[in-house]
């Protein structure tokens, strides 16, 4: 049955091509390699305003990606946003007085959390809270303040 053989081989190739395509999508296109849920540790921080921060937004130290935002919710007791971020386990020597700020990449870019290590002797661990936070800059507010101060200058 030469015909059957040809057919079976081509079906085999077809399935293999599908697997290669999926592998390509997994490894090359998506981030399956970089964050393979290697059980990092989670820390939280409270912000007055998170701006356009999203789940899976990057968390960086000195501009280097060390983790990602894993959850964002609103804390009704504190009237603030609680942001949980997962930090890769190899970055386990961040001091516990590290400060977290929400920055914007470029003028219209996405928002991310920048961590600034402090000087404490003890390190962050699972469940720690970052005390020092700085909220996102909201463009409208800045422009509003700028116009307001200009107006006040003009009034003088």
């Amino acid at each position: 049955m030469k015909q059957t053989r040809y057919m079976e081989i081509s079906v085999g190739l077809f399935v293999a091509a599908g697997m290669i395509a999926l592998f390509f999508l997994a490894m090359k296109v998506s981030n399956l390699t970089s964050i393979s849920s290697d059980a990092g540790y989670t820390v939280t921080a409270y912000f007055e305003n998170i701006g356009g921060l999203k789940v899976r937004s990057p968390v960086t130290v000195s501009g280097v990606l060390v983790g990602r935002v894993s959850a964002i919710d609103y804390d009704p007791a504190r009237f603030e946003a609680r942001v949980s971020m997962e930090i890769e386990s190899r970055y386990d020597n961040l001091p516990d007085d590290t400060a977290a700020s929400i920055f914007t990449a470029g003028l219209l870019g996405e928002q991310y959390i920048g961590l600034e290590p402090g000087a404490s002797e003890t390190n962050l661990k699972e469940g720690s809270e970052l005390k020092l936070t700085q909220s996102a800059l909201v463009l409208e507010q800045i422009i509003g303040q700028f116009l307001f101060s200009k107006a006040q200058e003009g009034a003088k």
């Binding site: 999926l22 999508l25 997994a26 296109v29 998506s30 981030n31």
Partner: peptide, 12 residues
Amino acid sequence: QMQAKVDFHEDV
């Protein structure tokens, strides 16, 4: 950029 933004579970 592609790898940073495309999530295997969420998207693929």
